[in-house]
Computed example of a mutant assay.
Amino acid sequence: MIDIVNQINAVRREVANRPGAEGEVRALRLTRTYQAEVEDVWDALTNEERIPRWFLPITGELKAGGSFQLEGNAGGEIRRCEPPTLFEVTFGDENSIVTVELSSGGQDTTVLVLEHTVPAGLFPDSGTLSVGPGWDQAVLGLGRHLAGEDFADSAAEHDTPESREYAGAAVYAWVAVLEAEGRVEAAELKTAAEAAHEHYNPSS
């Protein structure tokens, strides 16, 4: 069973526009603490035998300079890999960058920070709602795996009613972040939220 309220509250969500290497970027960030040591979290994130047990089947050369392809999802290039604390990849497009950083939270815990950036203006600011809940499902799956759960079919697990309900709740957690930011008009935000909720938790 997924404790949806506690799992939603376990994630800190942020959005911001900030300078990038080649101009302003739009960034969304998730931060979550896991009851596991950094080396174990790193292994779960980068070991091709463990990734399918909580996320999706993956192929490729999983090292700096290599590439990867997630089954039924995005692929990309591995731009940086600094075990056991940081990796950076392109995700679906060379301008779409995902960075994951790990640090010790003390008492055998690990703080994970996942940031996904795209060039500002490439998508509307409300586009956060089409991406953020998907990353929520990923960090949830990782947490369940680290707590001892493994999925015979991770893609099917992400499509169960309770996983969809969690993703639907994550949509509105991201809505609250966008409301606080104040960049998206209320009508646009409402329309985007409805579309995202129908995508992640259809007909609920």
Rank of each mutant, 00 (worst) to 15 (best):
134 G>H: 01
98 V>M: 07
30 L>C: 00
64 A>P: 01
30 L>S: 00
106 G>R: 09
44 A>Y: 01
95 N>R: 15
133 P>S: 09
84 P>D: 11
73 N>C: 12
41 V>Q: 00
128 T>M: 05
27 A>I: 05
68 F>Y: 15
91 F>E: 05
93 D>Y: 14
67 S>T: 13
61 E>R: 13
102 L>E: 01
41 V>A: 08
59 T>I: 09
95 N>L: 12
87 F>T: 00
74 A>V: 15
37 E>T: 10
127 G>R: 00
19 P>E: 10
117 T>P: 00
50 R>M: 10
96 S>Y: 14
113 V>Y: 02
115 E>Q: 12
49 E>T: 14
55 F>H: 06
111 V>A: 05
75 G>H: 05
61 E>A: 12
69 Q>D: 12
80 R>G: 10
23 G>E: 06
47 N>A: 05
45 L>E: 02
94 E>H: 14
120 A>V: 08
20 G>A: 03
81 C>G: 02
43 D>S: 15
61 E>G: 10
67 S>F: 07
44 A>I: 05
104 S>E: 13
78 I>Y: 09
45 L>W: 00
129 L>I: 08
37 E>F: 06
127 G>H: 04
21 A>M: 10
30 L>I: 04
110 T>W: 07
60 G>Q: 07
81 C>I: 12
34 Y>V: 04
60 G>K: 03
99 T>H: 01
52 P>I: 13
82 E>C: 06
130 S>T: 14
69 Q>W: 09
88 E>L: 11
130 S>K: 11
108 D>F: 00
56 L>W: 03
49 E>K: 13
124 P>C: 03
59 T>G: 09
73 N>H: 14
73 N>M: 14
20 G>R: 02
23 G>T: 13
133 P>K: 02
53 R>L: 13
117 T>E: 06
98 V>H: 03
76 G>C: 11
45 L>Y: 01
33 T>M: 01
88 E>F: 04
39 E>W: 06
70 L>E: 11
52 P>G: 09
103 S>K: 13
25 V>A: 08
33 T>N: 00
24 E>L: 08
78 I>A: 09
82 E>G: 04
53 R>N: 06
84 P>E: 11
55 F>G: 01
31 T>G: 03
58 I>S: 05
79 R>D: 08
103 S>Q: 08
44 A>D: 02
31 T>P: 00
36 A>R: 03
24 E>F: 04
51 I>A: 01
51 I>K: 00
31 T>A: 03
99 T>Y: 00
40 D>F: 10
65 G>F: 10
50 R>T: 09
48 E>V: 13
40 D>H: 12
59 T>V: 12
